[in-house]
């Protein structure tokens, strides 16, 4: 709570008057992923005065964002699901990451407190496949010798609306469970064989709050501000880790970013402390912009965000990219657009 009010206080200072001087500002528009929308709004707000750029980002979903940037109806697109090298070349797009986010599992089991329950990826996959249906299932009990788990039906909740959050979650489940990968697969909306959907983070959290025995997945920021009961998850190295800043950072620094389109796989990274469900979100920028000045402003805005925005990202519980990645992205800009 303390941190929250501090955050409010700090940002109040940044707020601009509504009808503030806009004449000298340059507008750029973007559309796409909903997952990074809060931080993009935050950056836009903070960057307006120092850069003179007004960013209008519409969180329409990754799919619609890709549509719009392909049709060049916006200056940049945002997507949680990275495009592959071939798709990027075909559409003349440069892809770069901006920030990372982490997902946590939340539960509602009587008598279980925050970060007490230990789960593994394959177990989570089996729960969302509908194969494990009781909280006192032998496999769960074996992982949690100290806890008394009730004989309660597991009620998995997922995002009803197509979302980047779902994309990251099923990416993780598919990475750790071949069966999940085959039966469900990866996408911003998938067919879950069990459980119920609810709209938005608020919907999933609300369902978990309402239903005894429910489990859900939300962005870490949401779990923190709403004091939801999170769980430990076993990572690639075999350690149970809690969802906290240090385990997120550990995952981020372990990833290999030297892949086309920076489509690094941060999910289920090696490293003794890595949180397994961390993912970057991406920006798509045309390499043959119709308006070079606007394209330059997009880069100027994200350059500002890389230099000055990490603190704001951390305040909203996003994970800033390592400095080395910022520089690699800047190098890619220079390569595509010149200095």
């Amino acid at each position: 709570m303390n941190r929250r009010s501090l955050l409010l206080g700090a940002s109040a200072a940044l707020t601009l008057p509504v009808f503030g001087a806009k004449a000298q500002t340059a507008q750029i528009t973007g559309a796409g992923a909903t997952f990074p929308n809060p931080i993009y709004q935050k950056w836009a707000e903070a960057a307006r005065t120092p850069t003179g750029i007004q960013v209008n980002y519409q969180s329409v979903g990754s799919g619609a964002g890709i549509n719009q940037i392909r049709n060049r109806t916006v200056d940049f697109g945002g997507t949680d699901a990275p495009l592959n090298a071939q798709q990027l070349t075909e559409a003349n797009l440069l892809q770069f990451p901006t920030v990372m986010g982490s997902l946590v599992a939340i539960v509602n089991i009587p008598g279980i407190a925050e970060d007490q329950l230990r789960l593994t990826g394959p177990l989570l996959a089996d729960i969302y496949l509908g194969k494990i249906t009781r909280w006192n299932d032998a496999q769960i009990v074996a992982l949690n010798p100290g806890l008394s788990l009730p004989n309660l039906t597991i009620a998995p909740a997922y995002r009803a609306d197509g979302s980047g959050t779902t994309f990251v979650w099923v990416s993780y489940l598919s990475a750790v469970s071949p069966e999940f990968k085959e039966k469900v697969g990866v996408g911003t909306s998938v067919r879950f064989p069990a459980g119920t959907g609810a709209r938005g983070n608020e919907g999933v959290a609300g369902t978990v709050r309402n239903v005894r025995g429910a489990i859900g997945y939300v962005e870490n920021a949401y779990a923190i501000t709403n004091k939801l009961v999170t769980t430990q998850i076993r990572n690639n190295a075999g350690n149970f880790v809690k969802p906290e800043h240090k385990s997120f950072m550990a995952a981020a620094s372990a990833a290999d970013w030297s892949v086309p389109g920076f489509a690094a796989n941060v999910i289920d990274q090696a490293g003794p402390e890595s949180w397994p469900i961390v993912a970057p979100t991406f920006i798509l920028l045309p390499t043959n912009p119709t308006d070079a000045a606007r394209s330059a402003n997009v880069r100027r805005f994200f350059d500002w965000a890389f230099t000055n925005g990490s603190q704001l990202a951390a305040e909203l519980e996003y994970i800033p990219l390592p400095e080395s990645v910022h520089n690699a992205v800047r190098a890619a800009w220079r390569q595509s657009f010149g200095a």
């Binding site: 929250r4 940002s11 707020t15 509504v18 809060p38 709004q41 935050k42 836009a44 707000e45």
Partner: peptide, 15 residues
């Protein structure tokens, strides 16, 4: 009534 929608944590309204 006086502010436009803003980022979370900032002073936003619904103008």
């Amino acid at each position: 009534f006086t502010h436009v929608t803003a980022a979370p944590g900032s002073e936003g309204g619904l103008l």
